[in-house]
Design a protein around this nucleic acid. Structure first.
Length: 552
RNA sequence: UGGGGUGUCGCCAAGUGGCAAGGCACCGGGUUUUGAUCCCGGCAUUCGUAGGUUCGAAUCCUACCACCCCAGCCA
């Protein structure tokens, strides 16, 4: 049985390759460079690669494309593995590293030299640029292009031996300096970099470029479908050139799809890194970051991220997905799965005058309105309660469905109350509202037939607990912070984080496990912070607010 | 002015010669002890534009237009 969802052009290609016997098993790979945290765009690639392998019973490797030691680190290797696992995927066997194949790559480099298909070039970066030509003019051959295989082999070995300084020479493929495809104008295979590599230490001073490594990595691992983003399309002829001219063990094929763009969001490692480095956010996992770690801390669930990736599809056209789709994916998941609870963000005292001092009654409330199997929680109902300041007005028009002086409102999962008077200070600020409980309204309408106009949430002022609530909003106030004609830092939303220290939660909430998500009724979905939450000092992050169609 | 791509509703996206799926968003209406959810209904005589082929075209042909990517010893 085929899943209709997840169907895309790559799915179709693989299906046919399998049916035609072009491949016997599908092998994909997710190949991040460990130079940053994974973001929502990577999630799309992960879901695609692992998802395809999964639906066709094949396998997917996690491979670190670690060919540039200067930008990479162990921190990123660790976080990437954690994020892939969190999303719910398992890679085949052990984690792969391009650096494990360095010796093989080197031998293949010598092979090309011997074949007369690669040469050592002494041009410096600037000279090389001049020789490369432009988009409309062909390049010129390097003066070192015709060195003999013997001389090239000698030079290459000495490059490897560390005899030459960084940047002094490179190994280039001998292809075509007049090619309209810039990637074919004698591309660089190896550059000299005296750097300590996080995996190989000081073993190497020459490192292969992406182009000379990627296809060969795929071939070594038996990858059948090497899926990357559109900007690598121009590299495909080069990818194929290496596969064709090298004695590789298999012949992988490259396919490209359109990378994810989200409005109100930046997804470029450079910009995300800048946000972290300049302290605009608290780190790569700040809940406002579009990183996997950030979304996790924000309260997104793995299922919601996967659902989102399924919703947006996979094509070769590049578009900009509305962040509202991501928000829908998480609301949809949490609506059906998150237990309900009550939290008052801006407390206002509500004194129930017809209840005796010290009154306490434990009310049972459903954890979920339509899923009784999720059980119940107990809510202490006392003489003094806290309601939200926004939920009371001395007077209001008929559109206002909350508590109004002299009128009634239903306290969620509890009784109907009627506001009788207001307590104010000299300045006229409301200090408290006095109301009376209408008897016998637990699960019933008032016997006198005067129904409440609405329902508001509440917390016991004496039994509730104080909590820190972090209200997050989108990091950028402009739909296209990425637009090239200005600085994305100028598009930051100054109100992307509001910390509410004096929020009050129903007592049971203090015992929430870190990363546990809830719907705070009438407010939104919140998650107990992964790191900062504790029963003694509860901390909740706003994942996403409830849809709000009230224009009040 | 070189090469490689892409253009279907505000956004994403099916569709591959037989008469425009779906999702998001939006707008109505109903249910509701969450102004949530849920339910019902509306939302492209038209597929970048202009020609052409055909009984018939988003799908085939031609030309044009727009946008994206490529001149790192980054990936």
């Amino acid at each position: 049985m085929e899943t209709r969802a997840g169907n895309n052009f790559l799915h179709a290609i693989i299906k046919e390759d399998l049916e035609m016997g072009r491949v016997s098993e599908v092998v994909t790979r997710f190949p991040p460079e460990p130079n940053g945290y994974l973001h929502v765009g990577h999630a799309k690639s992960i879901c695609l690669n692992f998802g395809l392998a999964e639906t066709f019973g094949g396998r997917c490797n996690l491979r670190f494309d670690d060919t540039n030691p200067e930008k990479e680190s162990q921190e990123f290797i660790d976080s990437i593995q954690e994020d892939v696992r969190w999303l719910g995927y398992e890679w085949a066997e052990e984690v792969r590293f391009a650096s494990r194949y360095f010796q093989q790559f080197y031998e293949w480099a010598e092979y090309l030299v011997v074949q007369g298909k690669a040469y050592v070039c002494d041009l410096n970066a600037e000279q090389a640029r001049e020789h490369r030509g432009t988009l409309t003019e062909p390049g010129r051959n390097s003066p070192y292009r015709e060195r003999s295989p013997e001389e090239n082999l000698d030079l290459l070995r000495r490059m490897k031996a560390g005899e030459f300084p960084d940047g002094s020479r490179v190994l280039r493929a001998k292809i075509d300096m007049a090619s309209p495809n810039m990637n074919l104008r004698d591309p660089i295979l190896y550059r000299i970099r005296t750097a300590v590599h996080h995996q190989t230490g000081s073993e190497w001073v020459i490192y292969p470029t992406y182009d000379f490594a990627h296809g060969q990595e795929d071939a070594i691992e038996g990858v059948t479908h090497s899926i990357c983003t559109l900007e690598f399309e121009d590299h495909r002829p080069l990818y194929d050139w290496f596969i064709e001219h090298l004695p590789v063990p298999s012949r992988p094929r490259q396919y490209e799809f359109g990378r994810l763009n989200l409005n109100y969001t930046v997804t470029s490692k450079r910009k995300l890194k800048q946000l972290v480095d300049e302290g605009v956010v608290s780190g790569w996992d700040d809940p406002r970051m579009p990183t996997i770690a950030g979304m996790r801390r924000r309260g997104f669930t793995p299922a919601s991220v996967r659902k989102f990736c399924e919703m947006i599809g996979v094509t070769r056209s590049d578009g900009v997905v509305d962040v509202a789709m991501l928000e829908h994916a998480i609301r949809d998941d949490l609506n059906t799965n998150a237990p309900r609870a009550m939290c008052v963000l801006k407390p206002l005292r509500l004194v129930l005058t017809n209840l005796p001092e010290g009154h306490r009654e434990d009310l049972a409330a459903a954890a979920h309105p339509s899923r009784p199997e999720l059980g119940e929680r107990s809510l202490p109902f006392t003489r003094e309660l806290l309601i939200d300041t926004e939920d009371f007005r001395e007077e209001a028009n008929k559109k206002y469905k909350r508590l109004v002086l002299g009128k009634r409102v239903r306290l969620r999962s509890a009784y109907v109350v009627e506001a009788e008077s207001v307590e104010k200070d000299e300045a006229g600020n409301i200090l408290a509202v006095h109301a009376r409980v209408i008897p016998d309204t637990l699960g019933e309408d008032p016997a006198d037939g005067v129904k409440p106009k609405g329902v508001i949430h509440w917390v016991s002022a004496t039994e509730g607990r104080q909590a820190t609530v972090r209200l997050y909003d989108r990091l950028f106030s402009d739909p296209a912070p990425d637009r090239g004609d200005r600085d994305f830092m100028d598009c930051l939303n100054p109100d992307s984080l509001r910390v509410v220290e004096g929020a009050w939660i129903e007592p049971g909430l203090a015992a929430a496990e870190p990363e546990q998500g809830f719907q705070f009724e009438r407010e939104g979905y919140f998650v107990a912070d992964r790191y900062d939450h504790s029963p003694e000092a509860p901390v909740f992050n706003l994942t996403i607010g409830l849809r709000d169609t009230w224009e009040g």
